[in-house]
Amino acid sequence: MEEAAGWLAALDAGSAAPEAFAQWRAGDPRRAVAFAQVVDALEQVERLRAVHEREPAPPPRVERRLLLRAAALAGGASVAGAFIAVQANARESASTITGERRTIILDDGTRVHLNTATGISWRIDGTSRSVWLDEGEIRLEVKPRPPGSGAGHPLRLIVAGANIRLDAGIFNVRRQPESVGLLVLSGRAALDGRRMVDAGSLAQVIGKSVSVRPAETIAIARAQSWRNGQLVFEGESLDFVVAEFNRYLDHKIVIADPSLSRIRLGGRFTTTDPADLLTALQASFGIRSVRGDTGAITLTTA
């Protein structure tokens, strides 16, 4: 900009050769842009001529105070029909369909959030409390047992043959075809009565093998977000992002062009509705989404 202004002033004073200027400008379109912007500034100044003689009386100050309306937070997750389970000796069960979330409060006060396509069952009696995760993902907010009712009994969680004991605390558990992931957000868990998992740790159970390591920030953010209907990504491949979205969708998204799978993206989607994602993909990458006869959404370039 400084360079362009120098040329303009020199041309204006007649001290620059037009040919030299033309050569400079032709060297880079950005120079032409800067020069045009400087000329524009000059022309706008010229408009002040109209008000130059007498400085305009300051216009009556009618300062409109814009009252920014406090942005109403989109209400929390709409929980479809939380209900109080009645005590019974038989196992009780609850489930969600694809795209649904619900919260169950067990008889001991433990709160269970069910994510999409999830099934649990449980049994609570005077001496023990057990929860089975049959499929999907849950968040368990385990209450301590009230004093005098068999204190010290942890909650027993059974997932795909793994036996997990949960003290009071908050746990995110996800069952996948090949593995089980247990993230301890607070409190403590014991795997098969031996392996301790502390708050902030993630345990992966694959068959008989167990690995415990500190949870990544993104894993914790993801566990905290789904019950608010949010999906969080931090540089994952489009493959992964689409797979996560598909858990919530009846009509799945399909990546038709394998070259797209490598795209990495991040962000927080405020809804499990894929419309935002599809719009963002279109806006940022020019990726088209086509809905087929069956309802499936296909992603293609161009």
Binding site: E2, A5, L8, A9, A13, S15, V38
Partner: peptide, 21 residues
């Protein structure tokens, strides 16, 4: 000098053009 006038004009226009963007 004319060249100093030129420099002042260039400086003023550069500042204005920047600010206008």
């Amino acid at each position: 000098s004319v060249s100093t006038v030129e420099k002042h004009l260039a400086k003023g226009l550069a500042i204005l053009a920047h600010a206008m963007q």
